[in-house]
């Protein structure tokens, strides 16, 4: 059996694997965005304690391998509560990406000119209101390119959940390799699947970016 035969023959089996990889990546990103925004707020806060808490979180997460985090959340946690592979893996990916996303949001919030907040405050807006209505919308827009980059990293890193037995793309590839013995072909095929997903993700991020920058150039359509 050659490469193309293996490729075509394994397509049906990959359908669920693709969906599972997308699901766990989306779950991880959703959790990661929430965590990221939360810790970004702690980091830009004027309260030193909150800065330190955020720094500690980011240090713990960035200082340990993702595979260790995934194993803690699955094999470690299973002694107390079994969340299942999808949820455990998704939370681990969320915690992990949350630290990086926090830094992205922090950077984009701090990149917004101080004059914006000052103008808002001078009009009588509260600090929460000026953050929510003036700074954040601009910061989120600015965060989209680095977020897109992080999303791609998250998608590829999700392959590590294969090692807790989650039936994702990489897990599928391992199974195909062990049943056929065609290691080179199996892993190149799964690589192609990741490339296609990354391509789609890049396309979506670019579209969002363009749509947002267009709205600032033209006329308001409300």
């Amino acid at each position: 059996m050659g490469f193309w035969e293996l490729f075509i023959e394994t397509i049906p089996g990959y359908k669920d694997a693709i969906i599972n990889t997308i699901n766990i990546t989306l779950l991880g990103l959703l959790i990661g965005l929430g965590i990221g925004l939360f810790f970004a707020f702690l980091k830009v806060s004027k309260l030193k304690v909150l800065n330190i808490i955020a720094d500690m979180y980011i240090y713990l997460v960035r200082g340990t391998p993702l595979i260790v985090q995934i194993f803690i959340l699955y094999f470690g946690l299973v002694q107390f509560v079994d969340l299942g592979r999808l949820l455990s893996g998704g939370i681990a990916l969320g915690i992990h990406n949350g630290a990086y996303i926090a830094e992205i949001f922090r950077g984009s919030i701090q990149s917004i000119d101080r004059g914006q907040t000052e103008a808002a405050r001078s009009l009588g807006m509260t600090s929460t209101m000026s953050m929510r209505r003036i700074v954040l919308p601009q910061a989120l827009r600015r965060a989209i390119p680095p977020l897109g980059n992080q999303f791609i990293i998250a998608l590829k890193d999700s392959s590590l959940v294969a090692f807790i037995g989650f039936q994702d793309l990489f897990n599928r590839a391992q199974r195909i390799q062990s049943s056929t013995g065609m290691a080179m072909e199996s892993y190149i095929i799964v690589g192609i699947y990741y490339l296609i997903l990354v391509l789609i993700l890049t396309f979506i991020v670019n579209r969002i970016e363009r749509a947002l920058s267009k709205s600032e150039r033209g006329v308001d359509h409300e």
Binding site: D113, E118, A119, S122, L123, I134, P137, Q138
Partner: peptide
């Protein structure tokens, strides 16, 4: 208090969004 005091800045500080 600030509502009673308008302010205009050198760099305009309009909200670009």
């Amino acid at each position: 208090v600030r509502q009673r005091i308008g302010m205009v800045f050198q760099h305009f500080n309009l909200f670009p969004h």
